[in-house]
Design a binder for these strands. Structure first.
Lengths: 175, 175
DNA sequence: GTCTATAGAACGATAGAC
DNA sequence: GTCTATCGTTCTATAGAC
């Protein structure tokens, strides 16, 4: 529900109705809605990290990025697709929320995956560009309801990788 | 307030308190909060389109994109920066909302600007890639609180333009 | 008089918390 | 299930402008 309808638009009453539990049961397991949101994001994060670990077993960086974006494209084609749950949540929760810490962890994992694929440091501009590709692809695909945004971003990501391999040193270096 | 704190987090009472007007006055000018949100986005859109028109007077496409992203980078560096108001709103409003139509108009204008800069059709994959760049840059810059995301996206945008000029025909054509 | 502004009470609905 | 608070909205009642 948080993913489909948004966090603020999903009230506690709807959550417990959907889960078929009593209101007290929810508050026995989660101190507040903020904590529930954080747990919801944490579940997403766990699945996401597991997928990244699978992709890390691939030796070819091209293949890693290709599979990664292919998975995104598949998601974007589904009727339930509603963009990146972390980017969406970042708009709705406050920056000091426990949920926001999960969001930051997500971006850390994402940057780590791209950095490993590129053989670069996590703060490398090329890694940032890939993060931008991911974020923009899912945001645009969601708003425009057009999965081809993900395909375009996938091609862009490959070009970043290609450029990086052709010139794997920092810009400004004499090569 | 809608931009800084989010749409759902900003109640009508706070709006009228901030504007210094009576509640009835607000409802005399706007039928509902949904209409107010749409008007808020429309004001943003007007300013955005005016900026794009200015940039369109530049003859060099490289310069157009450079100035465009330089403006974004400047915004991203300000303390009041909170990402793209349209992308943010898209997360909070319903798809059938009047506000969502303004959001769609925004993306139409954005794609049109990029298409003119590239000399391509609005549905060209390269245009989509630039939209992804824009969207991802502002989203990432907001969430990570790192304006360098915009700079990375600017470099990426230029590489899209360069690639487009080097091979301005559709992929698959025999050239 | 008519119109539009104001401040504010009060509405039903629903929020999150217990 | 019940609490309180607040949501978006409507209504009352009054004051000033043309």
């Amino acid at each position: 529900m948080f993913y489909r309808d948004g966090i603020n638009a999903t009230g506690i009453d709807r959550v417990i109705a959907g889960a078929g539990v009593a209101k007290a049961s929810l508050y026995n397991n989660f101190a507040s809605k903020d904590e529930l949101i954080a747990a919801y994001l944490e579940a997403h994060l766990d699945r996401f990290v597991a997928r990244l670990c699978e992709l890390d077993t691939l030796t070819d960086p091209v293949e890693r990025l290709a599979r990664f974006f292919a998975g995104l494209a598949r998601s974007a084609g589904e009727a339930t697709f509603s963009g990146c749950p972390f980017a969406n949540a970042a708009v709705e929760v406050r920056p000091d929320s426990p949920a926001h810490r999960v969001i930051e962890r997500f971006y850390g994992e994402l940057a780590g995956f791209f950095a490993r694929a590129l053989g670069a440091a996590p703060d490398d501009p090329a890694v940032t560009q890939l993060v931008v590709c991911y974020d923009g692809a899912l945001s645009a695909a969601r708003i425009l309801r057009d999965p081809s945004c993900v395909a375009a971003a996938a091609a862009l990501a490959q070009s970043i990788l290609t450029a990086r391999r052709a010139r794997p040193v920092a810009p400004g270096a004499t090569n």
